[in-house]
Write a protein that binds this DNA or RNA. Sequence first.
DNA 1: CCCCTTTAATGAAAGGTTTCAACGAGCGTG
DNA 2: CACGCTCGTTGAAACCTTTCATTAAAGGGG
Lengths: 395, 395
Amino acid sequence: MDEGDQALPAAGAESPRRVAAVPAQSAAPDAAAAADRVAGAGRPAGVGRPAGAGRAMGAIRAAGIKEVAAAAEVSLGTVSNVLNRPQLVSPRTRARVERAMEELGFVRNESARALRAGSSRILAYVMLDPSNPFFTDVATGIEEVAGAADLSVFLCNSGEDAAREARYLDLLLEQRVQGVLITPVDAANERLRTLPARGTPVVLVDRVAGAGEGCSVSVDDVLGGELAATHLLERGHERIAFVGGPDTLSQVRDRRDGALRALERAGLPPDRLTVLATGALTVAEGRGAAERLIGLPAARRPTAAFCANDLVALGLLQMCVGLGVAVPGDCAIVGYDDIDFAAAAAVPLTSVRQPRRLLGRTAAELLLDEANNPTHEHQAVQFTPELVARASTVG
Amino acid sequence: MDEGDQALPAAGAESPRRVAAVPAQSAAPDAAAAADRVAGAGRPAGVGRPAGAGRAMGAIRAAGIKEVAAAAEVSLGTVSNVLNRPQLVSPRTRARVERAMEELGFVRNESARALRAGSSRILAYVMLDPSNPFFTDVATGIEEVAGAADLSVFLCNSGEDAAREARYLDLLLEQRVQGVLITPVDAANERLRTLPARGTPVVLVDRVAGAGEGCSVSVDDVLGGELAATHLLERGHERIAFVGGPDTLSQVRDRRDGALRALERAGLPPDRLTVLATGALTVAEGRGAAERLIGLPAARRPTAAFCANDLVALGLLQMCVGLGVAVPGDCAIVGYDDIDFAAAAAVPLTSVRQPRRLLGRTAAELLLDEANNPTHEHQAVQFTPELVARASTVG
DNA sequence: CCCCTTTAATGAAAGGTTTCAACGAGCGTG
DNA sequence: CACGCTCGTTGAAACCTTTCATTAAAGGGG
């Protein structure tokens, strides 16, 4: 931030967008920065100074309950009562206190409140991948419930990285959050057990809780996989590819197992399912899988693909179309999650829909129950998925 | 949660996935719930109880610094030193204290720390729409910088709703967060000025700060619009549609103005730009715009469309392909943001790329500077966008 | 007119951490 | 041997709110 300044025109410049000659910037040229700068994007075009700007103005030390009490000529406890139990305070005094708060610009200090209360009014949702609309929809459901209970939601992004996940969980414990909702990367993470033991309830989202692991909310992924594969079998496909990974994700395993179950029911041998493993559930990995799929000898090449999620399916779809493989003619495709982009793809994607918002809402409700209800019983709630057929399978 | 229980089989059931006969569930059938339940998805398939589950076990009251001090037979201040200034403590004592912390399972209480420090170790990013990958990428950049400074990032979703935005800002002020990064819905929100006045720095993201408004980091949207339109003009299009809205978003206005500037430079009258306004920047709105576009009389129908963001462009693209309008043959399309899905669309989308991660990183750096550097000067940093040409314009 | 009840307001304690001035011990120097 | 230093440790105060037992005042009934 510093170097950019000296080359600026005289201080007090009026134009906020004035272009400075010096492009230097404290955004250090680290590896990550370099990635974004590829192809020339990202060089700051201008560094200006908004009119009237100067050094940060000295912040007025925030007025506390004490100052308010003094201004309203009441005791400290009375101010607290106005905030928390207004019905105990006479209308006259209440008005006086409220006026004082107004005048002093009083803002409650949540830290002090949380310290006193022993826990902060925050729920956290640790998610695998915020760029996957599935998780943001779940988050929306969580926010609905949390908002109604006057709690805020702290969204944390584990990025499918176990270490980051662990770091966030530690952090949340330090914050004494009311509870944690999590779609874990690593089901074996000991913190999933130590947090509840230390008084911070944890609810698993999109994952089934094992013995003694507390509450969970999930969708029957085995059934979802079966629905997808059955749909393809019914449309006459007898060789199916399963595209997804890594195998450490239970969602991937379950969906694949469901597909195998469908084959079995149809009386077909399990080797009719060709597994194409991917390193992650992303669009890029889907594209990569397409090349492998198309590279298979024609005799063994599946005529349909079931992908572990929609991102992978969209990548696969794009590559197929690009390489001249007709969808669904040469290769039918089924995704999973039914994200908005699934319907929006140029060949709208058949997908397995999950009740995403409801998933989030239910999880949040279980969490609140666990946090507040002393007679809480752990539950593993499981919802039913549903197949949405679109053009990628129905020619 | 309550009704689900009584119909369960005998307590102590071992199977976590046991199916209960009673589908009832405390997830109330409110309006939002109903939306998700459309088409039958969302009915809980089962409510089970993980083996070994019971009422929440009484949490052990967390050990504090005091207990640790007692256990290690040192003073309270020494424990604090071990945590914050370990070099001041002799190795012997430090080891003793660390062992005590280990044994007691000591976890720092962030609330107390924040109370004492006057601010919590949290940055917040208030974003318009977490389901738009543009914002999650910006968030990733912010997290990189915050993580390096040992701060956590609180992600807040305003959902393009001014009231929610206001509520979050109030909340963040109460939390005494270190600073707020925001892509505001409502540039006129007075809180954008009151927060800094109360000592919480605010940096605008993807929006240019006006006079006396503090720091901002943005991309030159006018230039971006110009790049997009120029690209289309160079490819021979002389009637262009601009698809986007609402007009209250400065991004929309600027990008449109940039397109107009391109027309002007090319010596064409401004009425060659047909504006198709949308209510939001979503896939669904893009689809709707497609119908209006195709409905125009052939003589006035543009041969190309420039969309205010990629979501709108993808919706438009999908609908065009679905309705038999060849892309780019009958209608070329340019998007904005270059989100991953843009390249992944079946007709890969030409788009205007913004340095998203860098945007986030720079914003976070400005914020940290403002929070920590007493000689901080407000800056309006602006980056340059870049056009990425793909098949949706290049036949 | 006094006592008892109800209502309103008070003051102090507690919650866990950080900071800082002060203290004591050990050591080298004069 | 005494002085002054440094190093390691200490104890208390401060941060701001909430809670609760207590006091004071007002009102009603006997």
